[in-house]
Simulated scan of single mutants.
Amino acid sequence: MKAEESTKDNSKLQLIIAINYSGKYDVVQACKSVAKSVKDGLIQLEDINENLIEQELETKCTEFPYPDLLIRTSGELRVSNFLLWQLAYSELHFIQKFWPDFGKDEFVDALTSFQKRQRRYGGRN
């Protein structure tokens, strides 16, 4: 494929394709895995924390599991059960255009909007 050939030497961008992915299912499976570890005596109830749950999420396969920016096309103003845990501190950008029509100009607009934001990660100034 042309895309594979032209990007084969890239090392800084990770593309993860989530087919039939459910954020709710991801969190439930992570909780079940942690609960099994408690049941099996591998960890204590007091050991359960965010980090432990994060280690069981599907995005544990990547070095960067938490998107800085989510661009939502199609005019929908929701995340649609996508990366529910991982999007906690992501910036959201909504656009009316559908995915096939989303192009360079729209991407630049999204990045420009993102650059103007002050990221607080849940904190206050």
Rank of each mutant, 00 (worst) to 15 (best):
N81A: 07
P67S: 10
S33N: 13
K97T: 15
N51V: 10
G41I: 03
A3W: 09
K12G: 13
E50D: 13
T7N: 12
M1W: 12
S22M: 00
Q86A: 06
E50G: 08
I48N: 09
G103H: 11
Y66E: 01
V28R: 14
R78E: 01
F107I: 11
T62D: 09
G75S: 01
P67I: 07
E46I: 09
F102Y: 13
K97P: 02
G23V: 02
R119Y: 05
S6P: 10
S113C: 13
E5K: 11
F107R: 08
V28D: 07
K60M: 10
P67D: 06
H93A: 11
L52R: 09
S6A: 15
P65S: 08
R72E: 01
Q118K: 13
E63P: 08
E58K: 03
R78P: 01
E63S: 15
Q55N: 15
L92F: 07
N125D: 07
S80W: 04
K2D: 15
I95W: 02
S37T: 05
A3H: 10
F114V: 04
S6C: 15
W85Y: 09
I53F: 05
E56C: 14
K8M: 08
S113D: 15
F64G: 06
L15M: 14
I95K: 04
L111C: 15
L92C: 04
D105S: 14
Y25I: 14
V34M: 04
R72Y: 03
F94C: 04
P100Q: 13
N81F: 06
D9E: 09
Y66N: 01
E76K: 08
R78N: 06
V108K: 15
D26N: 05
L77G: 05
Y121K: 05
N125S: 10
L57A: 11
L83P: 01
Q14K: 14
F82G: 01
E50Q: 12
V108E: 13
G75D: 02
L92E: 02
R120N: 04
R78D: 03
G122T: 01
I95E: 06
K24A: 12
R78Q: 05
E4D: 14
V28P: 04
L84D: 04
E46S: 13
Q118W: 02
Q118R: 11
S6N: 14
S33I: 01
K39M: 09
L69S: 01
G75P: 00
I17L: 06
E91G: 09
K116S: 14
L84V: 12
M1K: 13
L15G: 05
E54S: 15
L52A: 06
R78W: 03
K32W: 07
E54K: 14
L57T: 11
D105W: 05
L83C: 00
L83H: 00
N20M: 07
C31I: 12
E50W: 04
P65T: 06
Q86L: 06
I43T: 03
D26E: 04
C61W: 12
S74R: 03
A30H: 01
D68K: 11
L69A: 03
A35E: 09
V27Q: 04
D26W: 00
A35W: 07
G123Y: 00
K104Y: 11
S33C: 11
P65L: 05
K12L: 14
S37A: 13
R72M: 01
I19G: 08
